[in-house]
Design a protein around this nucleic acid. Structure first.
Length: 841
RNA sequence: GCGGAUGUGGCGGAAUGGUAGACGCUACAGACUUAAAAUCUGUUGUCCGUAAGGGCGUGCGGGUUCGAGUCCCGCCAUCCGCACCA
């Protein structure tokens, strides 16, 4: 073996990164005639540092992108920044910096970090959502949706922090208090902007069916989130005919089992009554206080307040039902009122038992027909309708259809589809977001900003020294003339939810003209995204909003794409062991030392406790900084680690031993490539193995099963190392370099150059994936397992395709098999050609 | 509570119903070295056995099958999502 120097990533990484950049290797050509592949990872929020989770995410996408290039595709693999959002404002408040400056500095830092990892990204398409070149087009799209009636304004309750004078998201309200101020949060009504996502509820639901390249889990989560249910809406009138209570039910078949009506604490009827009833007022207050955590709800008792009111049953005006205010009825679902059918709904039954209300069975199964209802478990299964006049004997489905038909014919109710999905509130009372391009005029009302006045840019001079929205108190920004009548008017000071920014960035990546959001024909060439990769935490909001936005653009005729992401992959987290001292304070891994099974703190010698393996987080001090590990091991070893061992959808545990193993492999691959000998002669077995690995690695990469691709490359490396010199071996060495080049591109380029003298140069990034010889995929010898009674007793290596009778004879000739049979009667012999023989006694 | 996923050596994990544990990590032994690192060669599920070989093994209990980690039924555990949705 020649005495080779080590592969030195500290020199090689940057050199190849520069060469790729100079040659524009990864710039996507809109006009290419090749088949296209759009590979996209969810773009990062510029928090300041790249997280190891980003590295995993982008490495996966990068391997796919590079592989697609090698297999003849024109690849679009862009990167940008989800750059608006609250952390920039928080930084502004804490550090007295401008959110824009803070964000742009972070972008510069993180871009440099990403570049060090050698991703095959088309940086010419980089975008940041906080720049007017981006958000100005977003404003134009917003106004197009507004013109199409998909944007509206309504009063809506928000969480108001009276100290910070700001609206808080639900996640920022902790135990009813503001997360920063600690002040008790008030419910306030504010006029807010909404997008009509509910218009698309059914489309978004049925569209999931075609997304067969999405994880079932994500589709299910979206399905549940949309929450479609069908039923009957009808009115329970007050006796005397003056008004009533609207009720929505998915079980109109159980109407004759009704025993009460329950309304939400916030229901208008309850509110009216409470005005003159202090005890009801007190009950309502208490309902509102109830916790909303899982544990609270699970243990919350069903409680009610008898209003003394009664209502008529819609099917029998002589039948009067009591009206309760109940803590389990939600105002913001359905009509805020339900009728209780205790026999067939667990909540209703709990309630009825507590308040001693009648329980009538109206669905029977099997022998229980017509028996009185007993016990505390509601019957919700299928069955036959009983105790229900004309419906008796029907199935549940027949009865549902019959009641709805009758209600509609008789005019007392209508069949209705109800969704859990709400319209998307996009107003944020914040500075660092896309300004909503609307002007409020005393005379003209709501006036969209004319196209030629876009973008509406954020003012630079703002202060964060006092709480509240800086746009609101800016001396001049909101003061404008009405574009319609010219009178003094007021600019909208709300900004858009950042989820709007991320709802179309993938279109802008595909096409970014200056004068419009995108060039339709170009965008349509690239879209939909062929492979989208990101964290499962975006399973609902981001992915649903992006689907909606794309459909909305399609609806108004801007693009002929309905689903933005053809294939979705959600990757697992990166985890790391945690450590704590005796008092429970978190320790970083480099503060502790291991001796056997005992962990001690290096500085003090005090004992430490090795805790759970958890997602890397600053608070638990189990983070690893990508820059540090790239410094130490180079980009390729880090990339290789990100792909090895754990299946990509599962969590990956960071470990020192693991990364060192990867470093060793990178060096081993390097040494291997120095062993091209120029020898003659074919090694058929090695050729065959090589081709099997070519096929396997390609299939694994396409399936994003990177851990398996890595294992196959190791396997091939082991075999090449042991093989004697031959032309086949030299060829296998070139092949393994090509196969691993998407994963360890710097090493691959470096080694490729060294081999390049023979090959005529060129970048491995521009090389093609090794061609597959199908003839070499076939083995000509196979190893056959010989089982007796299903247990392995022997193996035989025979020519492939050997006739069954011969295999059988060889199997029976085996001494081990004869011992196992032990003179017993052979009942049957199963022969699976080229695989196995099973002798049944 | 509802829904979903997962469960295989010391660890991460492989395995179209057909030889369970590929590949990696760890550990151990050996070679090279003044020494260490690096590298190389072995061994590494478990029990019995000097060995040859054999028994047992994919969370637990059943079933289907010539044959089950894989399919079916019922449990258990862990994780994730949703949550009083009428």
């Amino acid at each position: 073996m020649s005495n080779v120097e080590r592969f030195n990533p500290h020199v090689a990484d940057a050199r190849w990164q520069n060469i790729w950049e100079e040659r524009s290797s990864f710039v996507a050509d809109d006009n290419s005639t090749k088949p296209r592949a759009y590979v996209l990872e969810m773009f990062p929020y510029p928090s300041g540092r790249i997280h190891i989770g980003h590295v995993r995410n982008y490495t996966m996408g990068d391997v796919l992108a590079r592989y697609k290039r090698m297999t003849g595709h024109e690849v679009l693999h862009p990167m940008g920044w989800d750059a608006f959002g609250m952390p920039a404002e928080n930084a502004a408040m804490e550090k007295n910096v401008h959110p824009g400056g803070w964000t742009r500095d972070n972008i510069a830092n993180m871009k440099a970090q990403l570049k060090r990892l050698g991703f095959a990204i088309d940086w010419t398409r980089e975008l940041a959502t906080c720049e007017p070149e981006y958000y100005g087009h977003e404003q134009a799209l917003f106004l197009k949706l507004y013109a199409a009636g998909l944007v509206y304004r309504k009063e809506s309750a928000v969480n108001w922090d009276p100290v910070d004078m700001t609206v808080l998201a639900n996640e920022q309200v902790i135990d009813g208090k503001g997360w920063r101020s600690g002040a008790p949060i008030e419910r306030r009504k504010l006029s807010q902007w909404f997008l009509k996502i509910t218009d698309f509820a059914d489309e978004l639901l049925t569209g999931l069916g075609a997304l067969d390249q999405w994880p079932d889990k994500v589709r299910l989560m979206q399905e549940n989130w949309i929450g479609k249910s069908q039923g009957l809406k009808c009115t329970f009138h007050f006796p005397g005919g003056d008004g009533g209570i609207d009720v929505f039910t998915t079980r109109p078949d159980t109407m004759f089992g009704a025993s009460f009506v329950a309304i939400a604490a916030d229901h208008p009827v309850a509110q009216t009554l409470a005005a003159n009833a202090p005890d009801l007022q007190a009950f309502i207050e208490e309902c509102r206080k109830g916790g909303t955590t899982a544990a609270d709800i699970e243990t919350a008792e069903k409680r009610g307040f008898d209003t003394g009111l009664t209502v008529e049953h819609p099917l029998d005006s002589s039948w009067h039902l009591p009206v309760y205010v109940a803590n389990f009825v939600l105002m913001d679902y359905g009509t805020g009122a339900v009728f209780g059918c205790p026999a067939h709904d667990q909540r209703d039954l709990d309630f009825a038992r507590k308040y001693d209300l009648p329980v009538t069975r109206v669905v029977a199964d099997g022998d229980l027909i017509n028996s009185a209802f007993a016990g505390d478990i509601a019957f919700t299964g299928p069955g036959t309708i009983v105790n229900s006049r004309w419906m008796n004997g029907m199935t549940i489905d027949q009865a549902k259809a019959d009641v709805i038909a009758r209600a509609q014919a008789e005019g007392w109710g209508i069949g209705q589809t109800q969704y859990r999905l709400r319209d998307w509130g996009v107003s944020r009372q914040r500075y660092w977001g896309t300004p909503i391009p609307i002007i409020h005029c005393q005379t003209c009302g709501i006036v969209p900003v004319p196209d030629d006045q876009l973008p509406v840019t954020l003012p630079e001079e703002v202060s964060f020294d006092i709480p509240g929205n800086p746009l609101d108190r800016h001396p001049s920004w909101s003061k404008v003339d009405c574009p319609s009548c010219g009178q003094p008017a007021r600019r909208e000071t709300d900004t858009l939810d950042t989820f709007v920014d991320s709802s179309w960035y993938f279109i802008r990546f595909a096409s970014q003209p200056h004068d419009k959001p995108f060039e339709r024909t170009v965008a349509e060439k690239w879209l939909p995204v062929d492979q989208y990769i990101g964290g499962v935490e975006h399973a609902i909001l981001h992915l649903l909003y992006a689907r909606f936005w794309t459909r909305a653009l399609n609806h108004i005729g801007l693009i002929d794409v309905k689903e933005p992401f053809a294939s979705l992959f959600t990757q697992g987290m990166v985890t790391h062991q945690t450590y704590q001292d005796a008092k429970g304070s978190w320790l970083s891994p480099d503060q502790v030392r291991r001796e056997g099974d005992i962990w001690t703190i290096i500085d003090s010698g005090a004992p430490a406790v090795a805790g759970r393996i958890e997602k890397m987080s600053k608070s638990k001090k189990n983070v690893v900084d990508p820059d540090d590990i790239v410094d130490q091991y180079g980009a390729d070893a880090v990339r290789w680690f990100m792909l090895s061992d754990s299946p990509p959808e599962r969590d990956l545990e960071w470990s020192e031993a693991g990364i060192e193993g990867c470093w060793r492999f990178v060096q081993r691959l390097w040494r291997l490539t120095s062993q091209v000998s120029g020898a003659d002669g074919a090694d058929k077995a090695l050729d065959r193995k090589t081709h099997q690995v070519i096929a396997g690695v390609g299939a694994d990469i396409e399936a994003l099963a990177f851990n398996k691709a890595v294992a196959k490359i190791y396997d091939l490396a082991n075999i090449i190392e042991k093989a004697p010199p031959s032309a086949s071996r030299d060829s296998a060495i070139r092949t393994i370099l090509l196969l691993s080049s998407p994963m360890v591109p710097h090493l691959a380029e470096e080694a490729w150059t060294q081999l390049g003298a023979e090959l005529g140069g060129g970048l491995i990034a521009d090389a093609t994936w090794p061609a597959l010889d199908p003839a070499l995929l076939e083995e000509d010898e196979v190893t056959i397992a010989i089982q007796v009674r299903g247990k392995l007793r022997d193996t035989l290596t025979v020519a492939k395709g050997l006739p069954q009778a011969e295999i059988e004879a060889l199997a029976l000739a085996s001494q081990k098999v004869q011992i196992a049979i032990d003179g017993g009667d052979i009942k049957k012999i199963i022969v699976v050609p080229d695989r196995l023989v099973n002798i049944v006694l």
